Computed example of a mutant assay.
Amino acid sequence: MNKWWKTIAFIVGAAILTRWIPFSSFFRNVDTLVHEFGHAIVTLLLSGKVQYIHLFADHSGVTYSSVAHSWRFIPISLAGYTISALFTVLLFYLYSRGKQQAGLITLSVLALVNVLFFVRNSFGVMWCIGFIVLSAAIYFVPWRWLRDFYYLLVAFICLVESVLGPLFLIVASIQQPTQAGDASNLSAATFIPAVFWSLLFTAVAIACARVAMGLFFNANRRPPAGTRPAFGWSKHARRT
């Protein structure tokens, strides 16, 4: 249980710190993009049709889609927050393997796919293009410290947003159960209260955050590349 509290404390600290960094608000839409893309990709997997995605300046978003059978809205509604949380694990896994550049490529391709096929409002299109250009520029800079800083900034903002989103959803589910986004959709489809789904999303997000934090701290405990491990170092230690 102590590790769970440490995870929560770290998320709170990361939320405070990332808000202080100039222009960090720009990157909060990365989590929104992943969330909406999660809805879109599951819709396509279930033979549905994605009409369009809209991203907004207040870091909210919406995916308009249609499917043949109403039960399919359940996995589609579950996908947004779940895939958003899992994506943070992917970002920190790539960091733990020293593959920040692969992570930048993944982020850029994600934005490119969305702007080509799904995002259709003017703000969303301009944001995606700006993010692609900025990430591409960072990819080619000769300073590794700048790439690492940029990558971790995006990763930590995604981590924070993936947890704060469901937490805000709990409040919305209690105050306005019919206006709680994905939780309301799931409640309408299953007759289970919206607050239950909000709590489920929060539990998944915190669990993924704990895994992501484990990957981050394990990566920072590795010896520098090119050095020999000290006596007694596990034979299973990753090589850089």
Rank of each mutant, 00 (worst) to 15 (best):
L152W: 03
S84W: 03
L167C: 07
P224I: 11
Q101H: 09
I41H: 02
R120V: 01
G214I: 06
V30T: 06
A230P: 03
Q101F: 08
F156M: 05
L44S: 04
Q176E: 13
P177Y: 03
I74A: 12
R210P: 00
L116W: 08
N29G: 01
V211M: 09
F149Y: 13
D31Q: 15
A68V: 12
H236E: 15
S173N: 06
L44T: 11
F123T: 00
F118C: 01
V62E: 10
W145K: 12
T63I: 05
K49W: 13
V171G: 09
G103L: 04
G103W: 02
P193M: 07
L152C: 04
D31I: 01
A136G: 10
T7D: 09
T227Y: 09
I170V: 12
S65N: 12
I11H: 07
V195N: 06
V119E: 00
V42M: 06
V109L: 15
Y151H: 07
A15I: 02
R210E: 10
Y151M: 08
I16C: 06
F10T: 14
A40C: 13
N29A: 02
P224S: 14
L107D: 01
V62F: 05
S173P: 07
L17F: 15
R221C: 09
Y139D: 04
T7N: 13
A180Y: 01
W233P: 00
Q176I: 07
